[in-house]
Amino acid sequence: MLSIRNIVKQYAGHTALSGVSLEVERGQIFGLLGPNGAGKTSLIRIVNQITAPDSGEVYFNGEKLNQSHIERIGYLPEERGLYKKMEIGEQMIYLARLKGLSRDEAIKRLKVWFEKLGMQTWWKLKIEELSKGMQQKAQFVATVLHEPDLIILDEPFSGFDPVNAEVIKDEILELNRKGATILFSTHRMESVEQLCDAIALLDRSKKILDGKIKDIKNSYRNNVYLVEYSGDKIDMDGSQPFHLLDEIGSADNCFTVRIKLNENITSNDVLKYMIPKVHINMLQEVIPSMNEIFIEQVNKIA
């Protein structure tokens, strides 16, 4: 769907992107992660043809990115903004027509969207008469009205209250179900695990990690388990197939510990060892969250 190859972008005095490559597959929800100043917005602007890279190429559906692709991309920038003194209906039609929609078609689709999001009464209002949250909603509609194949959202949830953030999230998921590919940038990790199929992690102009969430998490499994048992405390004397990392809690003969399995040992072996000795309440593999991976990766480089 979108293939970004070896992009380099320099601004006077600093490098925004140094040799970044990414593959976004059709139908994916792709998260572009990274701390502030990592180059996320620079990359997004290049995909939107707002700026051009110094070197490297972007391919859209196998074709080199060109002006004809503009109509198939929808873009919600991080800094939201609309014409303050223009009526919403008229403004939405204008933006849709700039994306190649006819006037009639734009009106038809707007009516559907306005009804869906409870905005019917806004048509004649000016943007300056709306609250920040309402403006964001309107801008979201403007982004997706022309039914783009690729929707690019820069920090989509910033500026929304929790209720509207949820509404927008559901809309994004529905658009994705209908076939749209979604690329969004964020520095909020919680949303990543819920939403994304794949991610790329940028830090200081370089890509330091990318891939499907599942694969990344798997690669970060390190045989650490959380065990809660009751009975007599197991004496960790080195004869076990695992060793203790730390004790998390103990109360009334109930103990919670974090253990790391020895080489070639599975969780089943752990159970086999423990069942005769204690009563097991819980055994759970500890997989690092994306947030932990993110912090670990960024710190590793630094």
Binding site: N48, Q67, I73, P77, E79, G81, L98
Partner: peptide, 17 residues
């Protein structure tokens, strides 16, 4: 200046040059 300060500029120039 209006387009710049209201930040609509980025939306517009993702559609036109």
């Amino acid at each position: 200046i209006e387009e710049k300060t209201s930040r609509i500029i980025e939306v517009i120039i993702s559609s036109v040059k």
